[in-house]
Amino acid sequence: MRNTIEVRGLRKRYGRTVAVDDLSFRVEPGQVTGFIGPNGAGKSTTMRVILDLDAPNEGTALVGGRRYRTLRTPLREVGALLDAGAIHPGRRARDHLLWLAYSNSLPRRRVDEVLDLVGLASVARRRAGKYSLGMRQRLGIAAALLGDPPILMFDEPVNGLDPEGVVWIRGLLRGLAGEGRAVLVSSHLMSELEDTADHLVVVGRGRLIADTTVSDLLASASDGRILVRTAQPADATTLLTNAGGTVHASDGTLAVTGLPADGVITLLTRHGVPVSEVAQARASLEQAYLALTRHAVEFGAALEPNVGHSGASTVEEA
């Protein structure tokens, strides 16, 4: 109960736009939960509702079993990075963290600790307006970590980070989960979370599309194809088709379904067809995700050709 985020039956409308529609999921401690969906899918809205910034029309969102608004020192319970740009440009980075620390009775040394942790110690006295997007992300992450909370939420934390920063944040997220914290990370790109997330909550158009583990999602997207590269594609196709397989050819590569991999090798070798490569086709998480969300994206574009995406992204930023 303590280190969880629990969203139940959440529904949120902005005017006539339904941003979140009957969304339920749980974020468990000790793992990184990826919150994936195209732009405008309702990820940021959900996070705002979790923080009690926006009031849902229906449903509840609980952190550690409680409503966020009832927390006395919320930064010690939940750390959140919502919008890295939401810093007054005239305020020094360190001052930004200082007032946050004061508000939750956190010691001042904690400010310097998190600045060190995110690698901003040397530029802590610079005004936030002079920061690059990547530095602001790091500052936002520092703010989230300030209260050493057991629950963490990051909305698109990879945005604007350089490759080194991307590697760093992956390590950070894994490390936080490894310490037993519940970590919710949103992204609209599956590739960003591929190697990081243990659990995935996939949303599109405000609805839950999948609530699954990474390995289950991969398995469901795999269809047992075997890729064969050969110098004699015509002969191979005849042999494999006769053996009961289905073959699709493209660019000198044959995609075979209906036959096991070792069967394919034995068959072709026995008939003297030269094989340069045989591989199990592995659907990437990206492909699985695209397949899942394609409907949601197309649905949106078809229904609201004029406002579709831009309208949805306005909601994201609102």
Binding site: R69, L71, D83
Partner: peptide
């Protein structure tokens, strides 16, 4: 606070 979005940090820090 509203212009910069700081209000959300404020309300998150003290709901």
């Amino acid at each position: 606070e509203y212009k910069t979005g700081m209000i959300r940090a404020t309300l998150a820090a003290y709901p």
